[in-house]
């Protein structure tokens, strides 16, 4: 009797122990995907804001023809990187303040599709070349005035000649913030000058100067300045310049 009992107990233990050996041994994601979104005409990266600006859309078609999209937000300088992806076949495109890479007409037909199918493995670099809605260029550096304000000069031009993306410029702003992450999602509206309505739409192609509002800026610190403008299209993404620093003594 005892022998039977022990042999049953032993076999249960063996069964339990051996079934435990089936651990989830799938390798952790270690593939890197990185790149940059650049302006096709100038070769410079397309500046954006982090979180609500440019993002990269991945459709992994290794398993399903109708996958749920996966997104990677880009940095504010237009580069992006993700170091924890699984290897796989992906259809990759970018969304942001530029002529959409995938366009559909009113009947839902895809008329433009510049997305790319890429085998993502190891360290894969995918760069995109796009036409931004607007191109904003500095005209000289921002100037600290005698009265403690800062005047910024810039020029806005159209980045595309596609007639579908010539909507009026709805907003222009010289965003001011106390750290380098500056943009429509992160700025100090006490000092930031803005243009809207006809002032904004008539600003294209001209050199425009805007001076910070709210009186003299408090001293002994740095201000991070970035010019932005947007057209009334889609999610109203802003186009940006890069960031410049002004030190107020």
């Amino acid at each position: 009797m005892k022998t039977i009992f022990y042999s049953i107990a032993l076999s249960v233990l063996v069964a339990a122990g051996s079934s435990c050996s089936k651990v989830d041994n799938y390798a952790a994601p270690d593939v890197t995907l990185k790149g940059v979104v650049t302006d096709a005409a100038t070769g410079k990266s397309v500046q954006t804001e982090q979180g609500s600006g440019t993002r990269i859309k991945l459709l992994e078609i290794s398993w399903s023809s109708n996958p749920t999209p996966f997104y990677i937000s880009s940095f504010q300088d237009g580069t992006y990187t993700n170091t924890k992806l699984f290897a796989g076949k992906n259809v990759i495109s970018a969304e942001g303040p530029f002529v959409p890479m995938v366009q559909v007409d009113n009947n839902g037909k895809i008329i433009v599709d510049k997305s790319r199918t890429v085998d993502v493995k190891g360290v894969t670099t995918v760069n995109f070349s796009v036409d931004p809605f607007l191109r904003i260029d500095w005209v000289g550096d921002p100037v600290l005035n005698a009265d403690g304000t800062i005047t910024t000069s810039f020029k806005i031009t159209r980045g595309t000649s596609d007639p579908n993306f010539q909507q009026d410029v709805s907003d222009v702003a010289v965003f001011v913030n106390s750290n380098k992450y500056v943009g429509n999602n992160n700025y100090d509206n006490r000092y930031t000058p803005t243009l809207s309505g006809s002032n904004a739409s008539s600003s294209v192609g001209k050199t425009v100067s805007l001076t910070t509002i709210g009186g003299p800026l408090p001293g002994k610190r740095e201000y991070f300045i970035r010019v932005a403008a947007r057209i009334a299209y889609g999610l109203n993404y802003y186009n940006y310049t890069d960031v410049k620093v002004v030190t107020v003594p």
Binding site: D105, N106, N107, G108, K109, I110, Q167, A232, Y233, G234
Partner: peptide, 10 residues
């Protein structure tokens, strides 16, 4: 001025 059109033109 936001547009989302599906494959069937809706």
């Amino acid at each position: 001025n936001i547009n989302l059109t599906d494959g069937g033109g809706n």
